[in-house]
Simulated assay, not measured.
Amino acid sequence: MAATAIVALGGLAQAQAVFKITAIPDESPTELARKAAPLVKYLETTLGMKVEFTPVSDYAAAVEALANKQVDMAWFGGFTFVQANVRSGGKAVPLVQREEDEKFRSVFISGDPAIKGLSDLKGKTVSFGSPSSTSGHLMPRSYLMKANIDADKDFKRVAFSGAHDATIAAVAAGKVDAGALNISVWEKFVTDKKVDTDKVKVIFTTPTYYDYNWTVHADMPLAQREKLTKAFLALSPATPEGKEILELQRATRFVATKASNYDGIEAAARSAGLLK
């Protein structure tokens, strides 16, 4: 796209370009904007150009935005990365992921004292996040299947809250009997005391899998990709700027990643019939 083409020229032209980033809306718009603000500022300094965070309406819109080069970089979950890679004809390139994303997990939570494990969910109402969420739908559904539980047949009702924080709210309010979500959002709510853990408890934690990453389009010049990767890898909790960004991103540090890390996610999606 125009932005990346100008970047390739380097020099003063960079100052007139706009580097656009987006993220899957797995949390509220205000939370996403809060998390993006210091990162945008950091990337502006690193890249020497204006950086804009462009919110999208849903997960599918984030996939389309990257595949159609309407944005330069996107924050994807493992499943949305796979979708973007398929949609773009194999042109989605994951640059970095948080160290935590090498061994990510999901949790099932419930406010019903009678629900103590996955088998107790049969005949109950259960909420996932977005249909395209890795940690809020795909992987929880995958582990249900491994426990011989078919969500569509064994649950009284399947709901989709749209986001991890919304799933917690639905369970806490008793709108559903249980919910599945990203473990880092759950842990943040617990730490911030935004959920009463005497009433809402974790009933199952999944095994680990690869998840989130920052992805660019393969048409981005290699020099630009390397500059972005280096910028993320340089973030350190030892500096005030790095500490703020890493804490908001819920990251210990960023590490390099590759497309093959998400082969397991793709296999799970195809097995569950969620990727055509």
Rank of each mutant, 00 (worst) to 15 (best):
V56N: 00
E64A: 12
S57W: 01
A33S: 14
D58I: 07
T45H: 10
L32V: 03
L47K: 06
V63M: 05
F53W: 15
M49D: 06
A61P: 03
G48R: 09
E64C: 00
K35N: 15
K50F: 12
V56W: 01
L47I: 12
T46F: 02
R34K: 15
K41R: 14
L47H: 09
R34G: 02
L47Y: 12
T54W: 09
E64D: 12
L39S: 06
Y59P: 00
T45M: 12
G48E: 09
P55E: 11
R34C: 04
E52S: 14
L32I: 08
L47V: 10
L32Q: 09
A33E: 15
A36G: 04
L39W: 02
A61E: 13
V51D: 09
T54A: 10
Y59Q: 03
L66K: 03
Y42W: 10
V51E: 09
A37D: 13
A37S: 11
K50G: 09
A37H: 08
T46R: 15
L66C: 07
E44S: 12
A37R: 14
T45I: 13
L43H: 05
A61T: 11
G48S: 13
A37C: 07
S57K: 15
V56A: 03
E44I: 04
A60L: 13
A61R: 08
G48K: 12
M49F: 05
E64Y: 01
T46P: 00
Y59R: 00
M49V: 12
V51T: 09
A61W: 05
P55S: 11
A62E: 02
E52N: 11
G48D: 10
V51P: 03
A60C: 07
